[in-house]
Amino acid sequence: MSGGQCAGADRFQYLQALVTEFQDTDRIGGICNLCLDKAMKNHILSSGGLSLIINCLSSRREETVLSAITTLMYLCTASSRAEITTPPVVECMVRFSLSENRRFSNLAKIFLEDYCSEQQVEAARSLNQHTALGIPLPKD
């Protein structure tokens, strides 16, 4: 492996370790704060971090899901918006917006209003099942 490939692998392992910590702890809002740093934001986006964070939307831990939504909002840029607002993610946010849990519903509504087009939201709302392609709704 060349030095560049090794560094890329190390970055991915570091990012994976952050996501694992993010999933395994009740208090890791730190990844949200980490994205506020421009260099870290670029690092997360360039290292395949979005898919790892999107996977956290299926966590059974309320704090993990809330942090994942917030992190996705912080990572949204002109170049990352399309990857963040894919149909499964938008449908997931529609489901969260219908939750009786006010924290989920409020944050999801902000995501839908600020980061998604009206067409994306309508397409997600028009689906009858709101299954989010395997992304389960966390327990209220």
Rank of each mutant, 00 (worst) to 15 (best):
R11I: 10
V94D: 01
I84C: 13
R11L: 12
T20N: 04
R102L: 06
G30W: 08
P136L: 09
N55W: 01
A78N: 13
A7D: 10
L137T: 07
V94E: 01
G3M: 11
M93T: 04
A39F: 15
M1W: 13
G3Y: 13
Q5I: 10
S2H: 05
N33D: 10
T86D: 00
S79M: 10
A68S: 05
E113P: 02
G4F: 08
A124L: 00
R27G: 14
P88V: 03
L66T: 03
N128E: 10
V90A: 02
Q119E: 05
L66E: 09
I54R: 02
L57W: 02
A7N: 12
G8N: 15
L66C: 05
S105D: 01
T64F: 12
Q13C: 13
L34T: 01
Q13R: 12
V121C: 01
L15K: 08
P88W: 11
P136T: 08
R61L: 04
P138H: 07
D114H: 04
E62A: 04
A17E: 11
L18F: 08
T131L: 09
S97M: 02
L45H: 01
Q120M: 06
G8R: 14
I54D: 00
R102S: 13
D140H: 07
C35E: 03
E62Q: 13
Q129I: 12
R27A: 14
V94K: 01
H43N: 10
I28T: 14
R95H: 00
N101G: 08
G48D: 14
L34D: 01
A123Q: 09
A132N: 14
I69G: 06
I110W: 07
I44W: 00
L50W: 05
D114M: 05
P88I: 02
A132W: 07
M93V: 08
A17T: 10
N42E: 09
E63W: 11
V65H: 02
A39G: 02
Y115A: 04
P136C: 11
Q16N: 02
S126V: 15
I28F: 09
G29D: 07
A124K: 00
L52H: 12
R81W: 00
V94M: 00
A82V: 14
Y115D: 03
A17L: 11
D24N: 15
Y115E: 03
L36Y: 15
R81P: 00
A108C: 04
T64S: 05
G49K: 06
E83R: 09
L18W: 08
D24E: 10
V65F: 02
Q16M: 02
P136H: 12
E91G: 08
A123K: 15
G4E: 12
E100Y: 06
L15I: 05
F96D: 12
I44S: 00
L45C: 02
I135N: 04
S99E: 11
R81A: 02
I28A: 07
L50C: 14
P87H: 12
A17D: 06
E21I: 03
C32S: 13
C92Q: 06
L127S: 13
L133Y: 13
A39C: 04
F96P: 13
Q5G: 11
F96H: 15
R27W: 11
E62G: 11
T85K: 10
T70D: 03
R27I: 08
M73E: 07
T25V: 09
P138Q: 09
L18N: 09
D37W: 01
Q23A: 12
R95G: 11
R27F: 04
Q5H: 11
